[in-house]
């Protein structure tokens, strides 16, 4: 796609969408949003960039391969799942630490979902585009 307008705008829109995706991720526990929805928005943002530039360009911007992100996400999921063991609680118990900010293992869990979904879906998207173009 060679439209200058589309190209220029897509960079700005991708940035805004990524910001929005992080915003949705953080507000997810109390308002509509969350890791899964945030991740899909991030993938669409990268997809936009992929259509205006190229899959290689997106890969270069990401620095890591999507699958690596996905596996890091799974690792974070597993860590948040076993943290309760160290406090004598069963697997996947939500633990909270609300002294300063409302932090808790569910947030970590959601971060894992966020990264894993970005990694998985973006991985397929980039691959399909590269193989078919």
């Amino acid at each position: 796609m060679n439209s200058v307008i589309f190209r220029t705008a897509s960079h700005i829109v991708t940035g805004l969408m990524l910001l929005f995706s992080v915003y949705l991720f953080f507000r997810g526990h109390n308002q509509p949003g969350g890791g899964f929805i945030g991740a899909l928005i991030a993938v669409i943002a990268f997809g936009l960039l992929m259509l205006s530039e190229s899959a290689e360009y997106v890969r270069a911007q990401l620095k890591q391969t999507p699958l690596f992100l996905g596996l890091v996400g799974i690792l974070i999921l597993m860590i948040s799942a076993v943290i309760p063991f160290f406090f004598g609680e069963p697997l996947l118990t939500g633990l909270w630490w609300k002294d300063i900010l409302p932090l808790g293992t569910p947030l970590l869990f959601d971060l894992g979902v966020y990264l894993a979904v970005i990694g998985g879906v973006l991985g397929i998207l980039l691959k399909v585009d590269e193989e078919l173009s």
Partner: peptide
């Protein structure tokens, strides 16, 4: 679960084990 968004709370807390499997 300290969350007002029931859908998200179900995903990351009440039924977190399902989510774990799905994400994998």
């Amino acid at each position: 679960a300290h969350g007002r968004n029931v859908v998200n709370v179900i995903l990351v807390d009440f039924r977190a084990f399902d989510t774990l499997g799905e994400v994998v």
